[in-house]
Computed example of a mutant assay.
Amino acid sequence: MSGTANPSHEVHRGDIPYQAPFARSASPNDSLTTAYGTDDTNLSDAELSEDAFSHKVLTGLRIYEKREEEERAEVRPLIMPRPRRGATATVSAQIEEKAMFDQVMRSLRWHIEELEEEDTIETVLQRRLKNVVETQPSGSELGLIMEGLMG
């Protein structure tokens, strides 16, 4: 070797010191520009201010409306003071009691559905896990397989 700084690494004159650059064809000219279609905005929408137009679009998308989950989260708690019964109970109190009962029943049904769904998912996962664990070969079976392959 001819006095190189790193004698363990040899460089030969025939070796290429780098890889050839990746060559690809040039992009077609029509892919470099963006062609937009004609403006299909209604005349009434074009006359709106920017704020009014954005409000109209957001109203159409119903962004500000609450989802069912949000409404359920904001309902009154399950345990509430019970309205009075008997001769002193008014019609409005009876209507309020029925509304409270209906709300509690809806909430309970929803919670039961959620629990049943979770239980179903857990059952399926446990079956799959049990099948995977049962189909794994034991250590002695692996030894027999290896011995069969080796000799």
Rank of each mutant, 00 (worst) to 15 (best):
D30M: 02
S31N: 14
S31W: 14
L32S: 11
T33V: 10
T34R: 13
T34F: 12
T34K: 09
T34V: 13
T34H: 12
A35P: 01
Y36I: 10
G37C: 04
G37E: 07
G37L: 06
G37N: 05
T38P: 06
T38W: 09
D39H: 00
D39P: 04
D39I: 03
D39M: 01
D40T: 15
D40C: 11
T41C: 07
T41N: 09
T41D: 07
T41G: 04
N42D: 15
L43R: 12
L43H: 05
S44K: 13
S44V: 10
D45E: 13
D45K: 06
D45C: 08
A46P: 06
A46L: 13
E47C: 00
E47I: 03
E47P: 00
L48I: 00
L48A: 06
E50G: 03
E50V: 04
D51Q: 07
D51G: 12
A52Y: 00
A52E: 11
F53C: 07
S54W: 04
S54P: 00
S54F: 03
H55Y: 00
H55K: 15
H55N: 15
H55E: 14
K56A: 14
K56H: 05
V57C: 08
V57H: 08
L58K: 12
L58P: 02
T59E: 11
T59C: 00
T59F: 00
G60F: 00
G60Y: 00
R62M: 04
R62C: 02
Y64P: 01
Y64S: 12
Y64H: 07
Y64R: 12
E65A: 03
E65S: 06
K66Y: 06
K66A: 08
E68G: 08
E69C: 11
E69L: 06
E69S: 10
E70Y: 03
E70S: 01
E70T: 03
E71R: 14
E71T: 12
R72P: 03
R72Y: 03
E74P: 04
V75C: 13
V75I: 14
R76F: 06
P77H: 02
P77S: 09
L78H: 01
L78V: 06
L78C: 07
L78N: 03
L78S: 04
I79R: 13
I79T: 14
I79E: 15
I79C: 01
M80L: 14
M80C: 12
P81G: 06
P81Y: 02
P83R: 10
R84H: 06
R84S: 12
R84I: 11
G86W: 05
A87F: 11
T88L: 11
A89G: 08
A89E: 13
A89C: 13
T90N: 09
T90S: 15
T90Y: 07
